[in-house]
Amino acid sequence: MTRTKSLLKVPVVMVALALLYLGLIAGFSHNPYYMQILNMAAINTIMAVSLNLINGFTGQFSIGHAGFMGVGAYVAAVCSVFYKIPYLVALLCGALAAAVVGLVVGIPTLRLKGDYLAIATLGFAEIIRVIIVNIQKVGGPRGFLGIPPYTNLLWTYLFAVGTVVVISNFVNSSPGRACLAVREDEVAAESMGVNATKYKVIAFVMGAFFAGLGGGLLVHLLSIAHPTMFTFLKSVDFLIMIVVGGQGSITGSVTAASFITVISEALRKFEVWRMLAYSLVLIMIMLTRPQGLLGGKELTWEGIVNVPGRLRRFRLPKVGGGRVGTTGH
């Protein structure tokens, strides 16, 4: 069946990425700056893939992903610094806290059809930021210093792989199908007997969980948590990653997250221009490939091996097959 086949594809892509990462590490391990970029790429992969579950696969519109990252970051940091809880347990606490907050935000807003989630997540992320700024115990506006630097490339990479494996398994499972159906047509899904609210909440809470995990990893990488790390602009970064990679494509998110991390590092010197460059790239993508680089498709071995063949076919006027986004009206 196609389902088992597609389940096998994702690990294959991950192994490919692992080899790429290993190659880079071998090349760059003497340079902590490059190592940092690789770590960031893995953390951003976690963020993008988990946001894609909510926005790309379930068709909701969350614009406060950095807020969940912030919850996970501060809770994990508090666990490590004040309670001396072991690193992995602290990460888990952060992720669970973010999931609980996701549940609280999600249940009232996801029952409604429409854009309430966007407004709610935007407001929620801001509230989280204000709360953090006002808690002196975690440094308030000065930031939370002295977080033990437990995160290294082994952990970020393992968690990135874990996130991809869990989320791609979920998407291909029966509840994952229900999420896809909700994205495609919520009313039709309900008339098939899918409890749309339930699956929207499941996807949202899962997404929040992994965002919280990403936050915990991040602050244990940088040794510092700061309210400005989890602003709306950060959420926009993750949105851009999934839009560029293709909403509904896990391998697209992985690729775009890694790529954008590197690009934005390269553009760091031109910080003021970064947003402008982002906007230009987004406009270009919207004009030329509104479905994102990969659309809803996944990168696969066959796909990569077939690239020459596809390029050849591309020159012919007719391009057959593919998933086309027409609606049934």
Binding site: A181, M192, G296, G328
Partner: peptide, 24 residues
């Protein structure tokens, strides 16, 4: 319920649409 305007899942295959029908 076969809804007005059909409301099939446009991005899912025929087979996946039918499988969704048996979801419950």
């Amino acid at each position: 319920h076969v809804p007005e305007g059909r409301r099939i899942f446009a991005n899912l295959t025929v087979l996946e649409n039918l499988e969704m029908g048996a979801y419950t």
